[in-house]
Design a protein around this nucleic acid. Structure first.
Ligand code: FES
Ligand code: FES
Lengths: 151, 151
DNA sequence: TATAATATGACTAAGTTAATCATATTAGTC
DNA sequence: GACTAATATGATTAACTTAGTCATATTATA
């Protein structure tokens, strides 16, 4: 029932890329700008971005003037996809792990059913929110928070 | 997004106690029977039961003829309470941890909102299922699975 | 008093998390 | 073409968490 920093950083990085994608879908974002946006350790973020690249969410360009950018439109990527990539399955089940045989009789295991219901509850949220949605929420928030400053 | 063995074992132990509570609310269950029910390491289970005792879900009786039993009726204990005790808060949020200052401006942090929605999705499941419910489900399952054997 | 049980704290091995370090590679710029 | 600014990638590591074990104390009953 927890998200690791790795997942947190991955989502923030994707959000930054999505924000920039909205501005200009061709722009390439150097890692330093992503670091700045999310206040993340650069070297750790490199690893995470590499994972995102290999999974096909992000593309990278090497060399001077290089950086990262979204491989697909933010509206076609849900946060659930990224969470699953980084954190593994959302099912909070222990018994599927290697070397654990679970209940003597799986058919009588009601906990597994509970975990399935929990997973569904999580899925309803994370599999319906796209990064475009996040961008929208972000903009709404920053706008209203600017008002607060002014007023 | 995961349950540890500790949580898994705690729920199984509570379920066994709830099953026995239904039979006879005064009966005291020695730890060995709980171990047998859930196929759990005895010494580890002792730790877990101690936690459950201290939290007031379970009572223990020492000495020969001793063991464990539910402190309250199974219908008054939700699995969410036990999960929170063992696993901590259900919110899958990383930034509340010690020493992590989170986003520069918390008001613009939309991830926190997402985690709150996820927590709500989980809560709807785990905070509505009591151990009495689990007992009911368990009995229904074992009944139908017995049929399968007979047929 | 012997025995069967839980209570409790200390300890530990293995795995995971959150990084860092070192080095290679690539693509522009001068 | 050399230099430089960037990512790519693998190896390594410190800290923490998990999943236990070990040793011992305490208690209640027979
Ligand atoms: S806990 Fe997984 S089969 Fe029962
Ligand atoms: S990630 Fe928690 S305040 Fe933004």
């Amino acid at each position: 029932m927890k998200i690791t920093y790795k997942g947190d950083y991955a989502l923030k990085a994707m959000l930054e890329l999505a924000l920039r994608y909205e501005e200009n879908s061709d722009s390439i974002i150097p890692i330093n700008e992503i670091v700045k946006f999310g206040d993340m350790p650069k070297k750790f973020l490199e690893q995470i971005l590499l994972t995102l690249v290999r999974a096909g969410f992000v593309k990278s360009k090497r060399g001077s003037g290089g950086g990262f950018y979204l491989a697909r439109s933010p509206k076609d990527i849900t946060i659930g996809e990224v969470i699953r990539l980084i954190e593994g399955p959302i099912e909070p089940i222990a018994c599927v792990k290697e070397g654990y045989h679970g209940c003597a009789d799986v058919r009588t295991c009601i906990l597994r059913n509970v975990w399935q219901e929990v997973a569904q509850g999580i899925s309803v949220v994370v599999d319906t929110i796209t990064f475009q949605d996040l961008v929208g929420r972000y903009k709404a928030k920053t706008r209203s928070s600017s008002y607060e400053y002014i007023i």
